[in-house]
């Protein structure tokens, strides 16, 4: 699933000094603009995580209000992806500027979930787009999504800009990465 985005200049040369890359990553991880691609039940839990005073995602430095996918760094695909919905998701991902991240929220987006034998459901969005963090659950609690975002931030912090596409996908609950 390794895939390169559009060239961004500095990154391709692979000569980013360490303090600079640390600073770059540090600033990137606390200014994630997340596009909400809410599809099914998980969209409501995502709304609870992003829009409710109890969970309040903005304290993690995540801003859930971009008007378009073209302004977003991160997309949370939450809910059942059907075969009719798969092409728009691919198009959404292609519209996002690099560097971009994908969180797959819920069993349906991960692998089909309770619709594993349905004729119209795509069994996992990783067939269409590369996924950075999988959040399991049906639907996952808002806390699980928040943990997924924290794991993604850790990943961004330790990221080598030159080969950021070579990493393995994360699983929430799979232990910290450092």
């Amino acid at each position: 699933m390794a895939q390169r985005g559009a060239p961004v200049g500095l990154v391709e040369s692979g000569k980013v000094p360490k303090p600079l890359s640390w600073l770059l990553n540090y600033s990137r991880k606390y200014s994630l603009w997340v596009y909400q691609w809410g599809l099914a039940c998980c969209a409501i839990e995502m709304g609870a995580a992003f829009g409710s005073p109890r969970y309040d995602v903005m304290r993690l430095g995540v801003i859930p209000l971009p008007a378009s996918a073209r302004q977003a760094d991160l997309v949370v695909v939450s809910g059942t992806v059907t075969d009719k919905m798969a092409p728009p998701i691919r198009r959404l991902w292609e519209q996002m500027p690099d560097p971009k991240y994908v969180i797959s929220m819920g069993s349906c987006a991960n692998c089909g979930g309770p619709y594993w034998d349905s004729y119209s459901v795509t069994k996992g969005i990783d067939q269409i787009i590369p996924v950075d963090v999988y959040v399991p659950g049906c639907p996952p609690r808002p806390e699980a999504l928040l943990e997924g975002i924290v794991l993604l931030q850790q990943r961004i912090q330790h990221e080598d800009m030159a080969d950021r596409w070579r990493g393995e996908p994360l699983v929430v609950g799979g232990g910290p990465i450092s």
Partner: peptide, 14 residues
């Protein structure tokens, strides 16, 4: 409509 069709009636049969 149909973007969220998950085939419930057929799934209920199995």
């Amino acid at each position: 409509c149909g973007y969220m069709h998950r085939g419930y009636e057929k799934l209920c049969e199995v």
